[in-house]
Design a protein around this nucleic acid. Structure first.
Lengths: 187, 187
DNA sequence: GTCTATAGTTGGATAGAC
DNA sequence: GTCTATCCAACTATAGAC
């Protein structure tokens, strides 16, 4: 692992615990056992760290959504795949995902614009899948907004739950969560 | 409304938008059309504002839970009442609830201890109700942890959804959310 | 690549006039 | 109750030695 990646990893951990604004470059340097000034040999500043962490995860979601849309399956199967995508990302990028969820509004400039666009596109794509499921009679005919709200609010919280759990409990989650979430909206 | 309450209200709005650490006393004063120094005639400091906002909402949850526990109803009915409690608090204390959800870790000293205790007690009480529902055969025999995770992660996100919605859409939510959430765990 | 030293800015909070 | 003025600590980031 490069020194830069070590810094990013340590930053994700600290930003998750205390939030972007409450973590100082001195805190981050201390976690890395170095002085704050030395960090600047690897990264251009605090903002670059935030943007790198958040945009990597956001692109992971976009790539996952693209893969799901490729498959020619039922809306139900696609929704199930998306639930598993959220669990997978929560496992692989736990800390960076927490940062995305809580500190995206502290992005600046082009990184902010890019994040907003990625999120909007992702939610729109998700909504299309739900809508096609309603049209096909797979899902209840309730408001797509309410449906998406319920799904995303649970999916966005997985990262809070994952780190506390054992491997077997995570396996349970992969089985039970699609059941619970999709039973609630199935017709 | 007292000047202090006006300050608390403005602070809740700003903390919700940018987070506790990113909002300065000068920002808050500007939102109140006054100078930062004048704030200190009404509050002792930034921490007092945070603690007041969060603990008021936390006590509201505790009072609601106490009322639900008093009633001698089925676990299903109690769970339904708790869902409505979360919606009610999200409507009445939208901004302060957002602050509780995102900035509780910035509480200090006794206020931090009190919040942690209130939250732990609330979750334990919620779990007891779910467990009694499983024992009574009202709910599926799946992990109580998973069940609570799913319920709370949705309920904790309501405040993100509420401010964007019309009165009729909120009425829809009150009808549909208990259905969606409880169907997922009903046996 | 890391350090010391420090520039330049901004933070929470106080003192004292009005 | 609000203001101006200010203290002092802490912040991000840079300069330059090693």
């Amino acid at each position: 692992m490069t020194r830069k990646n070590q810094i990013l990893k340590a930053a994700a951990q600290l930003f998750k615990e205390r939030g972007y604004s409450a973590v100082t470059m001195r805190d981050l340097a201390a976690a890395m056992d170095m002085k704050a000034a030395s960090l600047y040999n690897h990264i251009s500043g605090k903002q670059e760290i935030l943007a790198t962490l958040i945009l990597e995860v956001a692109h992971e979601f976009t790539a996952g959504m693209d893969a799901v849309e490729m498959d020619d399956k039922s809306a139900f199967a696609k929704a199930e795949q998306l639930i598993l995508l959220h669990i997978k990302i929560a496992l692989e990028y736990t800390n960076a995902l927490a940062v995305l969820n809580t500190d995206w509004m502290h992005l600046e400039g082009a990184a902010y614009q890019e994040y907003i666009l990625l999120r909007k596109t992702y939610e729109l794509d998700f909504k299309k899948i739900l809508q096609s499921g309603i049209s096909a009679g797979e899902f209840k005919n309730i408001s797509v907004e309410t449906m998406l709200f319920n799904l995303l609010s649970t999916l966005r919280s997985i990262y809070l739950w994952i780190p506390k759990k054992s491997t077997t409990e995570v396996a349970d989650l992969k089985k039970e969560l699609p059941q619970i979430l999709l039973k609630g909206i199935s017709s």
